[in-house]
Simulated assay, not measured.
Amino acid sequence: ATYFGSMHLAPNKVLVDSIVRLGQRAVVGKVSMDRESPDNYIEETQQGLADAEDFVEYTLSQQCSRVMPCITPRFIPTCTMESMKGLAAIARKYDCHVQSHISECCGEVSFSRHLHPEHRCDALVFDEAGLLTNKSLMAHGTLLDDDAIRLLVERGTSVSHCPLSNFFLGDACFRVNHTMNLGLKVGLGTDVAGGISASMLTSIRMAVVNARCLRAHKLAIKGGFDDKRTARFEVTPDMEVDVISFKEGLYLATMGSAKAICIDDKVGSFEVGKEFDALLVDVNVPGGPFDIFDGDSMEDQFEKFINLGDDRNIVEVYVQGKCVKRGDDFTGDVIKPVPVEPSSEKKRKAAE
Rank of each mutant, 00 (worst) to 15 (best):
D300V: 08
S32Q: 12
Y94V: 11
H8A: 14
S32C: 11
D145Q: 06
I335Q: 04
Q24G: 13
E44Y: 04
A88N: 04
A26L: 04
I76L: 14
F174L: 07
V27N: 02
D95R: 12
S158L: 05
M84W: 06
K218Q: 13
N210H: 01
F233N: 14
I149R: 09
V283F: 00
V28T: 14
L15N: 05
S197V: 02
T59M: 10
L280T: 05
S112K: 01
A193C: 13
L137A: 07
E234N: 10
K222F: 02
R229D: 11
I90R: 02
D51F: 15
L152C: 06
H116G: 05
A258L: 02
M7N: 05
P73V: 12
G29T: 05
P11D: 15
D333K: 11
P69Y: 00
G170T: 10
N210R: 04
R175T: 03
P289K: 09
G194H: 04
V153H: 09
C70T: 10
T179M: 10
S199C: 08
G321W: 03
S344L: 07
F75M: 02
A211L: 03
E128P: 14
F330T: 00
V235A: 08
T59Q: 11
E341N: 12
F4P: 01
K336P: 00
N307I: 03
Y41T: 09
A123Y: 04
H140Y: 14
A1K: 08
A193N: 08
L152R: 06
V31K: 00
V98L: 09
L144D: 03
V208Y: 03
Y41K: 09
S103N: 07
A231P: 02
A139H: 03
Y58F: 11
F168P: 02
I149F: 07
D95N: 13
I204Y: 04
K85M: 11
C105N: 14
E341A: 15
I314K: 04
S297W: 06
I244R: 05
Q24V: 12
N307C: 11
Q24I: 13
D291P: 00
G273P: 14
C121R: 10
L214T: 04
M200R: 04
A253P: 15
G327K: 06
K13I: 10
V186F: 08
H101P: 12
E118P: 03
V334Y: 08
V16C: 09
H8K: 15
D333E: 15
D191C: 09
S344G: 06
I204H: 02
A231G: 05
Y251E: 08
K274Y: 01
L22F: 05
L131K: 03
P11T: 13
R113K: 15
V16L: 07
V267D: 01
N313S: 07
L201R: 06
C323Y: 12
R348P: 13
K222A: 10
D227M: 13
E352I: 10
D17V: 05
L280C: 11
N210L: 07
